[in-house]
Design a protein around this nucleic acid. Structure first.
Lengths: 207, 207, 207, 207
DNA sequence: AATGAATGAGTCTTCATTCAT
DNA sequence: CATGAATGAAGACTCATTCAT
């Protein structure tokens, strides 16, 4: 006879949901969404199959749950956007570092979600709007301002932003594909990416 | 009746295989590998379900077939790699243009393959070795030489190569996700990417 | 604490049982026995799912409970049977009116029970013996006596009784099926049935 | 490579559908729709479970299929309606005989359908419209005409029709409930029903 | 007594694959 | 070679029932 607002109950529910999502992320990442069975997810979560359905509507809903958890992680970034006063290159390095760290933390979840997102029109829209587009727009706004300030070349801000974001998505894909170079030198990426994107690959004093 | 080597027969077989692969690519791209049914593939190819199995071992084999066709397309690139004498920036633009065009041509196939590749360990290895790594190594060799020639900054050639390649993979993902900016301004990408990667985003004369 | 015979406790138990049976009748009638869930029954009774099992052995037992309640209602009829002295037609009208009223009162319960009774061998036997056969035999006895008294044609009393009873069962079915004529003119049924069954449809002075 | 209109194929399909419907009727009648499993239906039809789904959309669709088959049987009756010239009582006996025979032929199907129809709103509407109402209206028209001709008392034709139809439905229910009297003396029903309904139970020269 | 989360057996349904024609 | 009906293994999901609190 607890109220629906009962905070203890809410916490238990949240804990159980996370326990299930963790298991789901792990199985989805390993086997892919379709090959993953609810039986295996349940077993990995240490619960019965039916229990999943006390917390999630359907197997699809597990993916949505994973996406939502991921989106929550990202809200932290908003603050970063306000740092316009500092050096542009420093900002890029800092931002790259953030994103690169997030991707490692969230790799399992991303690996669980991404392939299915590419394939499921509903999820695609949802994922794109909540996750990709939101970040793209934040970054785009930043780039646009920096261009106005004369710190950045007057490039197509919208497309340039996508290119940079694409690089991160692509690096995630390479990680998933098991590319050793990317995995092993992951820590050095932020500095390298800043060099490529901000300074350019052209040798200084070249031509 | 005919010998296995009979060239007419070989051609017919090849034609039929392509007909089936086209249908498969189309259904996989729309529905994803798992939601795609052999019934739908057969219907889209205008043949009976059973006929598929006269040309392919299994549904998985269709994916492998698609990957092989894709790999053949790419062999053309090898020649490009030898163009070391020209201007580095021009080379980048030319290469980016090639790749960007290939990606549009092959988008359906790539969209069909990529999500499943991310999810299936066997295909992952196969795809990575034949497709990603081969190109990465070619490009890496090129970059390494350009560095030695002093045309390119002395960056981590291996990782930089991955970053560039990642950008293309990521752009494909953004296309699949339906990003309007990327789709609409696709033609302007090669030049922009060259600017970003080769020249850098830093405003000239800045700081 | 209380003795099992404690009358207060007995009454509380009875009240709770009725509360649950009411909810069950309502859900069974709407959804049918199988589609009805104990969760919904509990919710409609304003109690927890588990509580049902403190008062009933199983979901099946709810149906048995409903049948028993129905049978209790019917015991009133016994008295009627003794009314042999009056006019036969008047008796029929009176009896039809009784039954027709009972059917409306008990419609929800009957609608809940009947479909499952038709389908479940155990219940079928139970329902038939306690409910159908008991009434059939009472009625049959009455008809038989009336025949001996010369008030009624010498028909096959047993089968004629079933035919009359069948009419009521059938009218219930038509109500459940939502027949508008039957529902709207329900009040006029007793008189009409007496006309049909006792007087016959043949026009007077016919032939 | 047969055309969709290919008559041989059409016949094979029809035969298979009937084979499956026969098995379904048999299992539904014994166990009830919900307790019946597709596995059991398949096994009783001598086919694999999956084969059912090559011929029917779903388990529900089997019920609809059974209803349609039943409706086809009934179209024969239409002719009967035109027989207005003969003696009314004779007509009733003939009609009762028809219906009573049909009910035995179709008992299994009716027993399979009826309980679920009482419980499923979609089927209820469908069954009532196609099966109950159609016959009711035919019969009602007949009764109305006979009343105008002065062969039948001026009763509420619509309701009287329902009462008669209800009797048949009720007799089916009593058969399903296993009433021995009804089952054993089934053959004598038409004559008895004519006596009850047309002549009335009142003893001739009574009162 | 009341609760309701956890359970897991049971089922419909899908669909890749086979094979007789 | 082509066909497509038949197959049956596999899996998501439901829900009556239990039992620790």
């Amino acid at each position: 006879m607890f109220s629906d607002q009962d905070p203890i109950r809410q916490q238990l529910i949240e804990a159980r949901r996370n326990q299930i999502l963790d298991a789901a992320a792990s199985v989805f990442a390993e086997e892919g969404f379709h090959r993953a069975t609810t039986k295996e997810i349940a077993s990995r979560a240490g619960i019965a199959e039916g229990t999943i359905y006390n917390y999630f509507e359907s197997k699809d809903d597990l993916l949505i749950g994973l996406m939502s958890r991921l989106a929550e992680l990202e809200t932290l970034d908003d603050e970063l956007t306000e740092a316009l006063q500092g050096d542009a290159r420093d900002f890029f390095v800092a931002m790259f570092r953030r994103r690169v760290e997030h991707m490692v933390e969230g790799q399992e979840t991303l690996q669980a979600i991404l392939p299915e997102v590419l394939v499921n029109a509903d999820l695609r829209e949802r994922y794109y709007q909540r996750y990709v587009l939101r970040i793209a727009e934040m970054l785009e706004q930043y780039v646009r301002t920096r261009i106005e300030l004369g710190h950045i070349r007057p490039v197509d801000a919208s497309l340039a932003t996508r290119a940079v974001q694409a690089m991160f998505v692509g690096l995630l894909v390479l990680r998933i594909l098991g590319d050793e170079t990317v995995v092993e030198r992951w820590e050095t990426l932020p500095e390298l990416l800043a060099t490529i994107i901000f300074d350019g690959l052209r040798a200084e004093g070249g031509e």
